[in-house]
Structure formats: structure tokens, C-alpha cells
Design a protein around this nucleic acid. Structure first.
Lengths: 190, 190
DNA sequence: GAGATATAATTAGGTGCCTAACTATATAAG
DNA sequence: CTTATATAGTTAGGCACCTAATTATATCTC
């Protein structure tokens, strides 16, 4: 029984949560909770995990990870030159993570580090010509695939989806914040 | 300038992708791509990452990770007794990952392993009384938080969101599959 | 029954991201 | 000027999940 001859799509399982599952869980403990709300939350979690995994596969085709691509793209969006701390803020990750991303990108020749003149603690990150070339070469396929991903939605549906997703995203703070507190969207820095 | 006195919400950054960003990227390479489609894809990625992170914080309150909670919940849904391979399939992760999850859950006394009678290779995983108690105790807060997460959507909007999310989720295969192929949703096992 | 092959679970090692601790530089207060 | 404190970046170590290789048992074929 051959099955890992071409690719290994052995465990590409979806494991989609169903409404009856949600109902059963809630009923088990006699909770006064809307089963559909739980279903939405569960599905979004499953979708997020699936997308994260797919994203890594996508970028690995170009020798990148999701984080390293995002760093390169952000550099490109800022004239090819940024401080690690700026990158961390733009990407929404810690400076430690940025250090790791830069290490590998520098090893691969896609960015380089250079000391700044003003502040001896800072080290500017620069997009190399090779890095810019990498972005240029992958752009057509990258964006085509992203576009295809939402291809099952028409224009109007995309707007609606954006709106709803935005509100659910604000609600995510309900997982991390205090119980009973209202979601407050952005927790801006300062 | 105190800021890490209570909690450390220093890097709780959203880094929300904007439409102008998407436009700029597409224009840079003269691609024939709908900027809004890219925006939807980018936002969903950001939301997925944020939710994944929030989920880990949420479950760490109960001494669990997202994966370990899902394993316990799946056990509960199957009379408290499953094979590792069944768990892997239900959770959509590899058997190697399941082994790791069980290791820690067993160490913490929430599940136990037992050899099966029929097949000497199999080892049944059993939800212990302590594991069941853990689920029972965390259920109210867990489900309340999940419900709160989608609290900004009314009933109708939840239905619409589920529908749209489902279609986008099917589209995720556009990232991993062949270029130009139609999304086909589930890749069932067999 | 012996040898090849399949399967269940585990182990070994890798990636991506995290937090906490550290180093080096800068700045403010006495 | 010296000492305390803040900040930029890095290092060290951890967790979740992965793939590939390994071990042990089962099954199929001769």
C-alpha cells in the first residue's frame, strides 16, 4: 500500500468541529452558553491553525518562513532600512524573535546589519539587493495564491467578512483579559 | 517610566495590515491582483496568529496548552478512552505530537496509558478522574470566554461568518496546492 | 514457519516563536 | 564625575508542533 510516493498528504486532516460536538460539551455541564458561539470560536481556531501551517508550507517554497517573509516585506515597505525594534513593533513579535529572524536572513544574504552613527546600541537592518530580488521573484506567485485563497468569496462577501473578522478579532481579548470585561480592540502602546 | 508593574502588555501589538499597504505591494510589481483580496488574506493570517497566541495564554491559566486541552476534550467526547492514533486523527496532528502531549498529561496525572488486549502494539489512553475533574472545573470559564469572544456578533452575523469562514478555509489549499487548481476543501483520509 | 511488508507508538532532531536574563550603550540625578 | 536607571539588541532556554528514523508487533506470502 504505497502512499508516500509523491507527496505526504497523509495527515492533512481537517478535524472540523461540528455543532453537535459543541452542543454536547455545553450540555455535559449544563452551561448557559450559545452552542453556535462556541462553534464559531472553535472553527476560527481550527482555521487559524490550518492557515498558519499552510503559510509555512507556502513560504518554504521560496526558502523563507512566514516570519522571515514578513520581515523582508516590511523592510521593503520602509525604503529597505529599519531598526530591529521598529521591525518588532511592525511585525507584532518580540525583539528576541526579530534577532533570530535577522540571523537567518543575514546568513542567507537577504539582509545585512550595520551600526548606526547616532546611537551605539542600535544596529540598522538593510534589505540587500539579493533580498529585494527574492521579493521581486516571488511576488507574482505569492499574491496569486493569496488571491486564490479568498477566491470563493465575491467582492461584497469579502467586505462583509472583513467587517465580521475585525469584530471577532477584537473579541479575542476576551480570552486573555479579565472575565466579564468588554473587548477593547487595540491595546496601543502607551 | 513604569510599565511592567502589573502585567506585561508591552508587545501586545496588533500590526493590522491596511488596504494601502496591500495596494502598495501590488502596485510595486504591477500585478493584476485585487488588493482587497490580499487584505482579507493578510487580516486572516494576523487574526489566526493572534488567536493562537491568545489561546495558549487562555489554557495556560489551567495548566494546559491548546493541544493538551483539545486532547482531553476529545477523550471526554469518546467515553474517556482512545488510541493515540485516533487522537492524532481527531486533533489533526501527527502521532508523534500526540505522544508528546500524552507524556505531559500523564506526568500531570490527567490521563494514563494502558496496553490493549487485542493488539500488542497499541496502548490505550484513558482520561483519569483527575483529568475529568480538570475539564469539569474549567468548563464554565472556558466556554464563557469563548462565547464572549464572538460576543460582538449577533446570531445572524455568526451564521454569515461561519459560512464565509468555511469557504475561506477551503481556499487555504490554494496556498499549499498546485497553482491554478481549484480549492477542494477536505482531503479526506482514504 | 521464515521472510517481507505494514502498522502503532516512540525517539531524535529541527523550526518558529516565546520569556527572562544578560551586555553594552545612553541618559538623568546627585 | 559617579551612580542609578532606561533602552537596544542578543543570548539562553522553553514549548508546540513537525518530519524522519527506530522499535516492536502484526500480517501476508511462500
Amino acid at each position: 500500500m504505497f502512499m508516500n510516493n509523491n507527496n505526504k498528504k497523509i495527515n492533512d486532516i481537517e478535524a472540523i468541529p461540528s455543532l453537535v460536538q459543541s452542543k454536547r460539551q455545553i450540555d455535559r455541564y449544563n452551561l448557559d452558553i450559545d452552542a453556535q458561539a462556541i462553534l464559531v470560536a472553535s472553527r476560527l481556531m481550527a482555521a487559524g491553525a490550518k492557515l498558519g501551517h499552510a503559510s509555512e508550507i507556502h513560504f518554504s517554497r521560496f526558502g523563507l518562513s512566514t516570519g522571515r517573509y514578513r520581515l523582508l516585506a516590511d523592510l521593503e515597505d520602509n525604503e529597505g532600512e529599519e531598526l530591529p525594534s521598529q521591525l518588532a513593533e511592525h511585525l507584532g513579535v518580540t525583539r528576541a524573535t526579530v534577532t533570530g529572524l535577522i540571523d537567518i536572513l543575514e546568513r542567507d544574504g537577504l539582509v545585512s546589519r550595520r551600526a548606526t552613527s547616532e546611537d551605539g546600541r542600535q544596529r540598522t537592518v538593510i534589505l540587500t539587493e539579493e533580498g529585494a530580488k527574492k521579493l521581486r521573484e516571488m511576488a507574482p506567485e505569492h499574491f496569486a495564491r493569496l488571491e486564490a485563497m479568498v477566491g470563493l468569496l465575491n467582492i461584497d462577501e469579502r467586505s462583509v467578512f472583513l467587517d465580521l473578522l475585525d469584530r471577532v478579532t477584537q473579541g479575542i481579548s476576551a480570552l486573555t483579559g479579565e472575565l466579564g470585561s468588554k473587548p477593547k480592540g487595540n491595546i496601543s502602546n502607551e
